[in-house]
Computed example of a mutant assay.
Amino acid sequence: MVLFGYNQSSSDNTLFIKKWQGKITALIVYVDDMVVTGNGEEEREALQKYLSREFEMKDLGALKYFLGIEVSRSKGGIFLSQRKYALDLLHETGMTACQPIDTPIEEGLKFCITSDQVPVDKGRYQRLIGRLMYLSHTRPDLAYALSVVSQFMHNPEEQHMKAIMRILRYLKTNPGKGILFSKNEDYSNIEVYTDTDWAGSLSDRCSTSGYFTFVGGNLVTWRSKKQHVVARSSAEAEYLGMALGVCEGLWISFILNDLGYPSQQPIQLYCDNKAARDIAHNLVQHDRTKHVEVDRFFIKEKLDEKILELPKIRSEDQLADILTKAISSRAFTKFLDKLGMQDIYTPA
């Protein structure tokens, strides 16, 4: 790719970009599969001929299916889902006729290893986790539930397997649910929603952090993950989560810059914890902040450079809430609608 005039992105080593005469062509590769896009038809054809001389290739035409992800187009935008994969998984696990359920994890449910629970087949448990993890590429609604059950892969018990079965029952409700990327003139605006459930793990009292990132109003990345350290206050836990969200927002801004669409506005980071926002603006803190010293200066630096802003947000509008805790089905459905998740296969 470099010999053919392409530049390898410094932010993603699998992304190659060529800008020529005001047009851009981009190629992203995963092992032996690749996707080419751009606004220069001649360059795309030249690239295809060049790669065909170097490798045995097959042109599959317009993108419809890539790594198990189905791609559909309409006037409203581009829709990504894994409907076939989800249906195959339900069939393989014998859950095709199961009773559907509204949420992937029971409201308020927390797990820990106990001594009175019955162990289950660890190999089967790990295989199911792996299959479900693959679905999370287009299903942010599964992120928190999978983050929880994956913590018990080395010592699963009956309660954990029941949680896996609940996720499959939830999957039965909308196997075709996915993400719609709609057209938006403000295409380079970056928004990050971060939230943390303080000391939520009963096993070790670590907190769970989560973030959603949006570009031009469209959801592009998300994560739900237990923190590696025990936070001594909710403000400290929230601040660690904010730092992860800032890093993700910066990475996305680097990708946009490589593509020739630099963000014209500061990254908007939404955190509903007032103490954490106050710490970010004021470095004169004491016991509450000495355990997150590096993160404090990192975020303060981005604020001073006008790369980052911390607008206020109400707790009821914090989308990342579903990445850190199990909530009611009503609130869960409301947040999924705001994330732009749809099921185009559901009859109107």
Rank of each mutant, 00 (worst) to 15 (best):
D102Q: 11
G40T: 11
G76E: 13
R288P: 03
I164S: 05
L142G: 02
D186R: 15
S263I: 07
V36I: 15
D304V: 14
L339Q: 04
N218Y: 05
S201N: 13
K312I: 08
F4R: 07
E92Y: 00
D343N: 15
D321W: 00
F332R: 02
S115E: 15
E158R: 14
H228A: 10
Y144Q: 04
P156D: 03
N257I: 08
A275G: 08
I322Y: 02
D278W: 12
D88P: 01
T114F: 09
S329K: 11
A143N: 02
I299Y: 03
E158D: 13
I252A: 04
P119G: 09
L240R: 13
R44Q: 15
R330N: 12
K334R: 13
E54T: 15
E41I: 15
K23P: 00
I17N: 02
L250T: 04
D12P: 01
V292Y: 00
E238A: 09
D141E: 14
Q227A: 07
Y125S: 01
K18H: 08
D197E: 05
D197A: 11
C271Q: 01
S201D: 15
I322Q: 01
V220M: 06
I279R: 08
S147I: 01
T93N: 06
N189A: 13
K19Q: 14
A348L: 13
G245Y: 01
P104F: 02
K122E: 08
S182N: 09
G245A: 05
L63V: 14
L310C: 08
P119S: 11
R330P: 05
S233I: 07
T208W: 01
A326Q: 02
C206P: 00
A348Q: 13
K226G: 05
A199F: 06
A46R: 14
G77W: 03
R205K: 09
G94T: 09
E238S: 14
S74F: 07
K290S: 11
L47D: 00
C112L: 05
R277V: 11
Y65F: 14
S234D: 14
V294P: 03
D195Y: 01
L128N: 07
V71M: 11
Y187A: 10
L128Y: 04
E316Y: 13
V230W: 05
S207W: 00
H91N: 11
D121R: 11
R232K: 13
S10P: 04
A235N: 06
G5A: 12
E158M: 12
D258N: 12
A320R: 02
A320K: 01
K19N: 05
T93D: 09
S224A: 14
R232Q: 14
T333M: 09
L135S: 04
Y85F: 12
R139F: 07
D102L: 10
H291Q: 09
Y345W: 09
Y211I: 01
E316M: 10
V192E: 01
M1P: 10
P347E: 09
T103D: 00
K84M: 03
G130F: 03
T138N: 06
K312Y: 15
Y170E: 06
E56V: 12
K306R: 14
K226T: 08
L3A: 09
P266E: 06
Q268P: 03
W198Q: 04
E41K: 15
P347F: 07
